[in-house]
Simulated assay, not measured.
Amino acid sequence: MASPFLSDYLLLLHPGHPSGVRIPEARYNELRALTGLDAAPVWLHDAARQAWGLTLDRPLAADLLVRERSRYGYAKASWEINLGCDYDCAFCYLGEKRFEGLDWEGKQQLLRTMRDAGVLWLQITGGEALIDREFGAAYEYAHQLGMMVQVSSNGSSLRKAPIRELFARHRPYRLTLSVYGATAETYEKVTRNRGSFGRFLEGLDAARADGLPVRLNVIVSDYNAHEVDDMVALCERYGFPHQVFTNMSPTIDGEANPLASQAETHMTPRSVFTGCNAGHTFFHVNPHGIASICKVGRDPSVNLITEGLDALPRLAKLYQEAGDRRELYCQHGGYGS
């Protein structure tokens, strides 16, 4: 797969492979001009062999996807496919978790819109993404459009045969799972879901057996802070890389109730915010196709379903107008938020 990416051009083995090759614009244009019966150029044979040990021995059209340039300049996006979840964590930033959103035609339209905006890396999240009834179809469609898909999940459905078969056919670029406890008592107190710890461990076993690219996020709250070391040990036992998150965020509706769940003795200082790429090269989309500059900053927003791609520059304009006016940025420093 050849794709523009910001000011570069990348050659990628397939949407689930972690490595790629940067190529000059002239070679991207050469691939873009090829027809189905054209032989692969010598340099492409060399690049595939050196990067991935791959021999190109079929007509190029059977293997090559060339993504078109986009005048919008986006590279990454995140998408809440549905806010519904099988867990009921008190500190969840989503607040009320409703099972609602776009129908299948709307999901397809949204994914094509994100592709046309230039999105190469896509994070599918929720709620719990894997329990959306159209997750599998949407995930496969994103792969067909040439997106590198990262899935964020609680891992409760990873043990299920349809999910394992899906990820065997189309490997995720990354699979990020949250860890809420190291024992059944604590984990199920956090998730308020009986049997959830056992299902989580079964999911980890399945992911390790299938060789999936898992990263674990250890979520620390007042409910599980006493098991931080044990949660880290669990991550290390499985051999998956991990990060520890100790600071909570308010809900997307601005309610502060998750902050009461923070484990104050484990909170870490936050660096002072100096700006980011939100709305400029990245955007976030909710289950209804409403795009905002990020998961936290959801106002203003644009409707990608009814307004289409031409609405996206308004998000970039918000970023550009902020400049160095810090009062227009997210505000936090030290331990505050």
Results as ranks from 00 to 15, higher is better:
202 E>A: 13
106 G>T: 04
259 L>I: 01
294 C>Y: 07
161 A>L: 10
77 A>M: 04
223 Y>H: 08
260 A>T: 04
115 R>Y: 08
148 M>T: 02
298 R>K: 09
101 G>N: 05
296 V>L: 05
314 R>A: 14
328 L>D: 11
34 L>E: 05
247 N>S: 05
55 T>Q: 15
45 H>T: 07
100 E>D: 06
101 G>F: 13
131 I>R: 10
52 W>A: 05
183 T>Q: 15
59 P>I: 07
104 W>Q: 04
186 T>H: 06
23 I>N: 08
336 G>V: 10
324 D>N: 07
39 A>C: 00
330 C>E: 00
284 H>I: 04
31 L>Q: 11
198 G>P: 02
293 I>T: 14
323 G>Q: 08
266 H>W: 04
265 T>N: 15
28 Y>F: 08
243 Q>M: 00
275 G>W: 02
167 F>G: 02
288 H>W: 06
223 Y>S: 12
193 N>C: 07
309 L>I: 11
124 I>E: 00
141 Y>I: 01
243 Q>S: 14
15 P>H: 07
137 A>G: 01
276 C>H: 09
141 Y>H: 07
329 Y>N: 10
169 R>D: 02
145 L>V: 12
265 T>L: 01
4 P>Q: 14
264 E>P: 10
240 F>Y: 15
46 D>H: 14
291 A>R: 03
319 Y>Q: 10
255 E>K: 13
45 H>M: 01
311 A>R: 10
87 Y>T: 09
202 E>C: 03
251 T>V: 05
25 E>T: 00
164 R>Y: 03
319 Y>T: 06
90 A>P: 05
90 A>S: 08
272 V>I: 12
222 D>E: 14
270 R>Y: 02
253 D>W: 05
96 E>Y: 04
61 A>T: 07
116 D>Q: 10
30 E>T: 14
161 A>N: 12
310 D>E: 12
232 V>A: 08
265 T>F: 07
33 A>C: 08
325 R>P: 01
151 V>T: 04
103 D>N: 15
293 I>L: 10
206 A>H: 06
168 A>L: 06
274 T>W: 00
40 A>L: 01
185 E>W: 03
213 P>K: 13
57 D>R: 08
19 S>A: 06
68 E>F: 00
271 S>M: 14
143 H>G: 11
270 R>H: 14
156 S>E: 08
177 L>D: 12
201 L>M: 01
163 I>G: 13
182 A>Q: 03
246 T>W: 02
68 E>V: 05
22 R>E: 06
137 A>P: 00
104 W>N: 01
246 T>P: 14
6 L>M: 05
123 Q>G: 00
290 I>L: 14
140 E>F: 00
21 V>H: 06
245 F>V: 13
159 R>V: 05
85 C>W: 13
160 K>P: 02
165 E>S: 14
219 I>G: 09
319 Y>A: 06
79 W>N: 01
103 D>Q: 05
158 L>E: 08
18 P>Q: 05
263 A>F: 05
186 T>K: 08
131 I>P: 02
317 K>N: 03
239 G>V: 09
277 N>Y: 06
175 L>E: 13
2 A>T: 12
331 Q>E: 12
54 L>R: 11
254 G>K: 15
34 L>P: 00
243 Q>D: 15
40 A>F: 09
234 L>G: 00
152 S>D: 10
